[in-house]
Write a protein that binds this DNA or RNA. Structure first.
Lengths: 139, 139
DNA sequence: ATTCTTGCAAACTATTTGCAGAACA
DNA sequence: TGTTCTGCAAATAGTTTGCAAGAAT
């Protein structure tokens, strides 16, 4: 919102570090939603020297800049995934995390219609579909 | 799922207690989503002698039986509200919690269409609209 | 009398924060 | 060199659990 919020004002550009690159690259390889803890574990498994705090920092930064999408599981865990730009929704496999980005014009208009019907302003909406993908359903 | 799961198998009917009644009654008076902590505080304010654990227990029981709806805020808090029966979605005021239950046939068919398009089975979907109600927007 | 319920205290879990030392530009 | 970044350890916060005492049937 404000160009210079009181919080963190960085006086210069973000720096490129080994850790940031590792997180970004891992996200680039995956097309599924994963938790911060999962991503951290995977990085360690690969021998990357990264701290959990840094993974969280990086994911927050990337989600704020719109580079990654965040969804929350039923038990409150946050899952992250590199995302395409623009407004979209997801069809997510509960079992393997496989995710398909979808758009729904009729959904958007429905949301807008309901908002105006009840005189709500500054509306946002969430729409997520969870199920079993064809691969996981066979097991 | 299973008639007798290994977990808690109750051998007789649930009992009516002062605490359960207090929680149920409070929910009956409110038409907004409230956190467990909020509900607990309100009960104490009214002089009810109830423990926080009991409020949580009761809310969990009631949500499992479908008596109350649960939504999660952005920061992971659970909000509860007595709900009408049947499948529905919500238009929720971010500021005061005012909630309107809505149905959306086109939404249901869209969800079904997307599921079959990508060969997903056992699908569920979520759809929530959050905004400012007309009252809160004037402030 | 028996079983369910309560609620304090402690445990849990995902996430955030303080901060001193390390790493970039 | 002067920030930014890192990551350990500790703090947070909502929620759950262990369990002994209390209440309902």
């Amino acid at each position: 919102m404000r160009p210079n919020s009181a919080e963190a004002l960085p006086t210069s550009a973000p720096r490129s570090t080994r850790q940031k690159r590792a997180v970004a690259q891992l996200l680039g390889e995956l097309d599924v939603f994963r938790s911060a803890q999962d991503l951290y574990a995977e990085l360690r498994r690969r021998g990357e020297r990264v701290g959990l705090t840094t993974v969280y920092n990086q994911l927050r930064t990337m989600s704020e800049s719109g580079e990654v999408d965040v969804i929350r599981t039923e038990d409150g865990e946050s899952l992250y995934r590199l995302c395409g730009s623009g407004h979209h929704h997801h069809v997510v496999c509960r079992s393997c995390g496989l995710t398909i980005e979808v758009e729904g014009p009729e959904l958007e208009s429905l949301a807008a219609r309901l908002a105006s019907k009840y005189h709500f302003s500054e509306v946002t909406h969430t729409f997520e579909i969870a199920g079993l993908c064809s691969t996981c359903a066979c097991v």
